[in-house]
Design a protein around this nucleic acid. Structure first.
Lengths: 232, 232, 232, 232
DNA sequence: TATGAATGAGGCTTCATTCAT
DNA sequence: CATGAATGAAGCCTCATTCAT
């Protein structure tokens, strides 16, 4: 796990009354330590069950420092959400090179996504589970990151229609993007209990489901009920 | 919302020492009142922020009765999850008549699903958001309900392949079912901010995405990357 | 155990919603049932940990009846103390026949005492342990029963000096009586972890210790420090 | 009582928002303050009636500190028992110098015992009354301290038989030790209502009772019933 | 900079007791 | 007579947050 930076000594030497955590580190390092610890705690126990005591101990830093550097518990949590959202968005954004064919772009995005989550479980838990629960002010933060993710996917999908009969705007793609994102998330949950599958395998499966169904739609093939059974 | 029956006055008039809430009701009625109130509270504020005080006040009953009838806060929450899960599963199960064509079955299931959620927001929030967070013992409860939902969908999908060249087992359908469920959930979230769409409209959109993409897969059409881009 | 009278059915038949405890019993019977249950509960868990719910369930009687018959929890506990104190005092008093030789009287008293406690652990626990703790109003009740016990023993001891050079008044015997009672109590506690001893064996041991030491004192043999080491 | 140092004002003057109790004391000092207050409270009101609020107020410290330093109410109570038991045992152990004659040793032990209790009523109440009631986990703690006390006395008594015809093992002395301890305890209770006696006077009385009766036994003089009165 | 010491506030839970049937 | 239903009051415990060193 990339959290819990390893610079502080991991073992209690036991001779002093208390492990004398490495002192006088520059602010940026401290902040990273804190955020790493916080992400782990929040992911593992949820916002309410994670205690500032626990986080401070986990980070190897006293509580007042956390307050000094990152503010209240709420602010700390928001900082976590933001950092992790940026990481993920950036990872995917980097993988998607605009020069490639649309399907290649989507494919790479999915692969990176599954790969990222596989190696950053805590990060993903924060974004997927914890940020969504708990009402304001987290909802806003969550909505914002969701927005970014959706915009990314929508753009990808819209780009795929550029050569079709009727090119579409990213905004029209939103519900499909939403469906795709949800399908991906759900597949990830399912993955937890079926770890025999590889990240690439899952990405491929999702790619197929999305690309084929989506392709049909774009090209006008669709399903409709035989008989309208509730004209109402 | 249908929960928390609205007959009792919501404001204290303040002239008497205490408004004598309808008294001496049989246990079953009280239990329903309590569960209704609890579902609303848990959905609105999350498990930790919902307080037993609030729930008891909302239910029009004193706290000790909650403990007497439904047990601890944890047990109360679990009771909520179970009741709501059963409701939803049952609603969908009822709509899916086995005599219909497979696509009709799926279509009806989706329609009822979107319809149910539209009219039972709190119920859905519990199942979708709150139950998933918070670790044990809620995870188990959540996993269980997830299991039921997935089994239902998997069966539906498998049934749709019966007349295909290679009929498939429900278990093989699981990842697709997971993807479908996730897509539905995500679409519902998206709906919240786009309420101009109807339940049927969304159901139709999802049906198309699923049925077409799924159909392609069943019939052997698939997408694959041109060049293995990470020989590694 | 003499508590928890066995008249009510012990098994749930399960067809009715609730076991219909035998109804319409005369008051005296109900009171005995309640006291039996209360003694057991108080002895087993102490005054504070014993709950009225528990007692009522144990007695097979609903709580309001307990309040109707025996008053508050405090009053109930006091009733227990009194009943058990009377039982014990009476048992000993009956055994001590004034016609016998003084040593025989004491001997019989001790034997009955140990025997009673052996067969009425709960009763003794109430008198020995629970009544002494918890402050007013139990202290008074405890003091009163202590008083009776001490008077009984003091009289016995005084009677033993009647034929000595200097016959003594019961009141002068009090500290010796106190010591004897305490020795007995302590021996009982010790017995719990050494159950291989018999009631008679313990009674004999105590009798010896008391009678010999006491006899020496009465006859003027005594111990005194060689050198007063704190003239002060 | 020496517990709960009396320096802080006992009454709220009410003009300020809160009297600023002496702040920032080192942990060890606070722990002592807390234990002192707890011993007083537990002794005066019993475990269940003593409230953490009361103790914290009495100790001049806020509740969370109690929990931080001494743990839960149960743990706090156990800490009290242990501290007081150690104090008493140590006091007696110090007084009993192994070079003295056995009777002198016992005599000194008794004197210190009565003296200690006279000046540490609360401490003794904890050990004698409160620790014995309330079931686990206090019973274990109580049993343990009882064990230590008994071992001390048994050793003293055994040592007294070293020069007799048949020297005895400490373990054989246990019932006598138990009786002696009980006699002492009971005498102390009696003392409460007869404060005109001095600690030395009581110690002497008990010493006589024990030493003489005990001496008789060691030397083979004993009492036995004339006629077996239970042919049964 | 860095932290041990400290606390106000609030939540969960239980219990003795009473009312209405 | 008998009880299921109901509640006010109070207790334990924890936590986010700050102060003084």
């Amino acid at each position: 796990m990339q959290a819990a930076g390893g610079s502080q000594a991991d073992e209690d030497d036991g001779d002093g009354p208390r492990r004398p955590r490495s002192r006088r580190l520059p602010r940026s390092v401290r902040e990273r330590q804190i955020l790493d610890a916080a992400v782990e705690s929040f992911a593992a126990r949820g916002f309410h069950l994670a205690s500032m005591d626990e986080i401070s101990e986990f980070a190897g830093i006293s509580k007042p420092m956390i307050y000094a550097y990152l503010g209240s518990k709420e602010e700390l949590f928001i900082a976590c959400i933001q950092r992790e959202a940026n990481r993920l968005i950036e990872a995917i954004g980097t993988a998607v090179e605009p020069d490639l064919r649309p399907d290649e772009q989507l494919w790479r995005g999915l692969r990176v996504f599954f790969d990222y989550v596989q190696h950053n479980r805590a990060s993903w838990t924060i974004l997927h589970r914890q940020a969504a629960t708990g009402g304001e002010p987290f909802s806003s933060e969550f909505a914002q990151w969701r927005q970014q993710a959706m915009a990314l996917i929508s753009t990808l999908l819209a780009r795929a229609t550029e050569s079709a009969a009727q090119p579409m705007q990213p905004q029209q793609m939103e519900p499909f993007a939403a469906a795709l994102v949800g399908a991906g998330e759900s597949l990830l949950d399912w993955w937890v209990e079926h770890p025999e599958h590889t990240a690439d395998g899952l990405a491929m499966r999702l790619m197929n489901l999305a690309w084929m169904g989506f392709g049909d739609l774009v090209e006008g093939r669709s399903w409709s009920p035989r008989v309208p059974d509730q004209p109402e």
